[in-house]
Amino acid sequence: MIDLSINPALVRKLLVEFIRSEVTRVGYTKAVVNLSGGLDSAVSCLLAVEALGAENVLALRLPYKTSSADSLEHAQLILDQTGCRSLTLPITEMVEPLLERFPEMTPVRKGNIMARMRMIIAYDQSEAFGGLVVGTGNKTEILLGYTTLYGDSACALNPIGDLYKTQVRQLARALEIPEAILAKPPSADLWAGQTDEGELGFTYEEVDQLLFLIVDQRYRPEECVEAGFDEAFVHRVIERVRRNQFKRLPPPIAKLSSRTVGYDFLYLRDWGT
């Protein structure tokens, strides 16, 4: 039995402390969160509010014209629950000129542009509001690379990046996130009818268990097969994790000198704080 259950009360406490520590130690008191209406950003937003106070968290709702109407409403449920500050700014008129320039544009390109436009707004509001951008990417999507580089993956700190999607769901229940958000199928909501599981070709339930064996338990591929996973699925997931390593690291710098950022100039982000 592969058990991904967590102690949500413990995790909640740790993550609230993490946000408070990482925001305040660099002289900030506020945070900005892109609130999509989905589960992950709802969790990040609630944790940020608990850490910093409702008046210190700015939640952004950034719909595109094809965004599901549910998304705005579900984000509203979180705004009502937390009482945090909010700003709703449709991105349609911002991205449309670029999309029109390339009529043949694929949904993936369009989706990336939307994700990056939301990043631009989050970072602009970071400056305007004086808050750090709190990330919303979970461990499953980070490992699978199911994210837009410099888009939704961009943030100053990420409280939920070491929780698999099914673990975020457990935490969400403890945070009393409304059932409507908990129950709906996860979606990047970049085009109508898109769902994560439809696009990935497997369920979070399945892939989280497999990733847990591969990553956390250090199982070899053949041991995953022995544990009951389909061999093709195992190899597809391993390959996907490998191919997306580039999204998890800063870009490589060509080493020329005796001391190079990233290789032998090594300091924590929290250096001096």
Binding site: D3, S5, I6, N7, L10, V11, L14
Partner: peptide, 10 residues
């Protein structure tokens, strides 16, 4: 450094 989130404590 704390690791492990299944129990009562880290």
């Amino acid at each position: 450094p704390g690791r492990g989130i299944t129990g009562e404590q880290i």
